[in-house]
């Protein structure tokens, strides 16, 4: 596997990663730039990245880190989730009953949406989601739990135990 394999990898995943970043809350241009930068790094380290179980998982994590750096630099607060307390959750539950799944996703606080998108669209492990979001695995689990409750999604029993999946 050399350059050709990387080219195939890029062709298969560039669009998918960029779209996922947009769903996670990025604007279009930053999503494209962060994805391109992540693939540039993958190319630089291709011998290492191609040996991974999920090279695309690595790209998702790097791209999200790029985005977070960008957000930090521009002091945009979109990654700041509001404090999660009982009242907020109750309120979101009430809203969720009236909204479609799609609206429920859209109304999630930023960090909850990021966690949901990375976990259930990009299919990252809890550990990778934690790397991508710059937090602990426990925080990811808690964030996902709140999001699932808000959207009234039934949790799989295995969810809590798959951090190493």
């Amino acid at each position: 596997m050399g350059e050709l394999a990387f080219d195939e990898f890029y062709a298969s995943f560039f669009d998918r990663v960029a779209r996922t970043l947009m769903l996670a809350g990025a604007d279009r241009d930053p999503a494209r730039d962060a994805t391109q930068e992540a693939f540039a790094r993958a190319l630089r380290q291709w011998r290492k990245v191609r040996e991974m179980d999920r090279p695309d998982g690595w790209v998702y994590v790097v791209a999200m880190n790029q985005l977070r750096d960008q957000w930090r630099r521009s002091e945009r607060r979109r990654t700041q989730a509001p404090a999660i307390d009982g009242g907020a959750v109750d309120n979101t539950h009430a809203v969720a009953t009236r909204l479609s799944v799609r609206d429920a996703i859209a109304t999630l606080p930023a960090r909850q949406r990021q966690a949901v998108v990375l976990r259930y669209l990009a299919d990252l492990t809890i550990a990778d989601v934690a790397d991508a979001m710059g937090c602990a695995t426990g925080t990811v689990k808690a964030t996902l739990n709140h999001a699932m409750r808000s959207m009234r999604v039934e949790l799989d029993d295995t969810e809590d135990d798959d951090a190493d999946r």
Binding site: L23, V101, R102, I105, V116, V117, Y120, L121, M151, R152, V153, E154, L155, D156
Partner: peptide, 11 residues
């Protein structure tokens, strides 16, 4: 809602 529905909707 089931997780599969959520995955489908996200896709």
């Amino acid at each position: 809602m089931q997780i599969d529905e959520l995955r489908g909707e996200l896709t």
